Amino acid sequence: MGRIADYAERLFLILLSATFLQAMLTNAVAHPYVLLLCVSETLPVFLMIIRRPGEMAMKPYPFFLAFVGTAAPLLVRPVAGGFQLLPDAVIAGLMTLGVGINVSAKLALWRSFGLAPANRGVRSGGPYKFIRHPMYLGYFVTQVGFLLANLTLGNLIKYLVTWTVQVLRIREEEKFLLKDAAYRDLARQVKFRLVPGVY
């Protein structure tokens, strides 16, 4: 059952990312910063393909959160009629910061990356020295940048759903990972989950 879930998760992400890329790349000339969002949201495809096996949470709720948390941000689109709150240079800077955090977290995880909660080895290097879930922080910063450049009701709703689900997802990952003594040690050393000094 675990192997079927593993392959289904990979196939889902590949198909969803392909449609996302197709929609985004058609707008890359007019809005070059969308390339940053493409990197942030599609790097998982490569990491999913090369990841190592590990113990996964098999309950429906964590899978549902992983599905929604991954699918919802892939549904946003750049829009000509959207309301842009900041200049392109500021948007690009914010999104670059988010992608930097995100990519550094993914590189630290490398073959341990997954969607549903899983334990493929506890990582404590790179940005994991400062917060326990830096990848989600990177997503949030990148997505806020994109939203500030493409503010529509539809994009706002998709991101509000995403951010709510990501917090719930962190809680589920924590429940699963805290079964591991190595992760409990990390949680004692790294106090905050998502934002230093806040949560």
Rank of each mutant, 00 (worst) to 15 (best):
F64I: 15
M95V: 08
G93W: 02
A30T: 07
T164N: 07
L115D: 09
T42S: 09
R188E: 08
V39E: 00
P60L: 12
M56I: 11
P32W: 04
D6K: 09
T162H: 15
A23G: 14
G81S: 13
L47N: 02
T162W: 03
G114H: 15
A72Q: 04
V34N: 10
F176M: 13
M135E: 10
A116M: 15
V68M: 11
G81K: 02
P117M: 06
T162F: 14
T19I: 04
A18T: 02
T152A: 02
S124W: 00
A187Q: 14
T19N: 02
R51N: 09
R188G: 11
L74G: 05
G82H: 05
D180Q: 10
G81T: 08
F176H: 12
A187L: 14
L97D: 03
V144K: 07
Y128E: 08
L13A: 05
A71E: 09
F83H: 11
S124K: 11
T26S: 13
G54M: 10
I91R: 01
T42A: 03
R120N: 07
R10V: 14
T19H: 01
F113Q: 00
P44H: 12
T162P: 04
K106E: 12
T152I: 03
R171P: 09
L186Y: 12
A149E: 01
H31K: 02
M48Y: 01
